[in-house]
Amino acid sequence: MASAPSKLYADDVSLLVVLLDTNPFFWSTSALPFSKFLSHVLAFLNSILVLNQLNEVVVIGTGYASCKYLYNSSSYSNHGLEDGRMPALCTRLLKNLEEFVIGDEQSIKEDPKGGTMSSLLSGSLSMALCYIQKVFRSGSLHPQPRILCLQGSPDGPEQYVAIMNAIFSAQRSMVPIDSCYIGSHNSAFLQQASYITGGVYLKPQQMDGLFQYLSTVFGTDLHSRTFLQLPKSVGVDFRASCFCHKKTIDMGYVCSVCLSIFCKHHKKCSTCGSVFGETPVELDSVSKLKRKTPE
């Protein structure tokens, strides 16, 4: 449901939904300590709130096995314009964050996922989109929403379908997904997310200056983006994951009915149940080359 332009505030009022990666597996190996990262992010969130009194910030924690709303600048606004004051932001956010991390740890113990070390990005993306939909549908005026993923953990191929669905729904509602990836390798998921939704993907080189990266690139409201040079994506990894083993593949089989992707030949499509024909003699000759091109 695209928003009608008349329902928007003038110019630069923005709603920023930040997805904060709290995956303990990542932070224990990261060169940048979590506390330092957090202080950069808090200053950044504060600067967004300072820029315009109507700006809103929502923080969602992306844990290993769960996600949660950590902070919402508008819900503490029983004081009208004084919402999102730093003391409130700091204390509320940190308190909720602590509770969340402890709860997340609990769920890891109860339900170990095994090998992967990825965080639940699909969950937090969906939560962000739900929140934005709620904003779209309520009230007469709403700020321009955008999502910022602060992600460090590697992609979880098993979330491929869910993440892609979230990306397409963000695209439909014209919500750009910005991503700031602080892990060691590039994230194919986030590259695609930003590319498809018209957001910015950036992998900062110098972690000490994270605030500068955040304020320069991700602090830009959607209105100003039309006038500014922002980092352009170079070489987006468009590879898809197969539905059967959740592996990232270059080549594979595609169901001609529902477009599900498989790395091996199956007799029957596991998604829509269509029955496939003969086993192909050779992979290269029969299988369709799977290249997902952006729309």
Partner: peptide, 17 residues
Amino acid sequence: LRSLPPLAKKFVLQMLY
């Protein structure tokens, strides 16, 4: 700061440090 045009706000933020 809040009264500035969006682009000007952006520059201030960028130059802040």
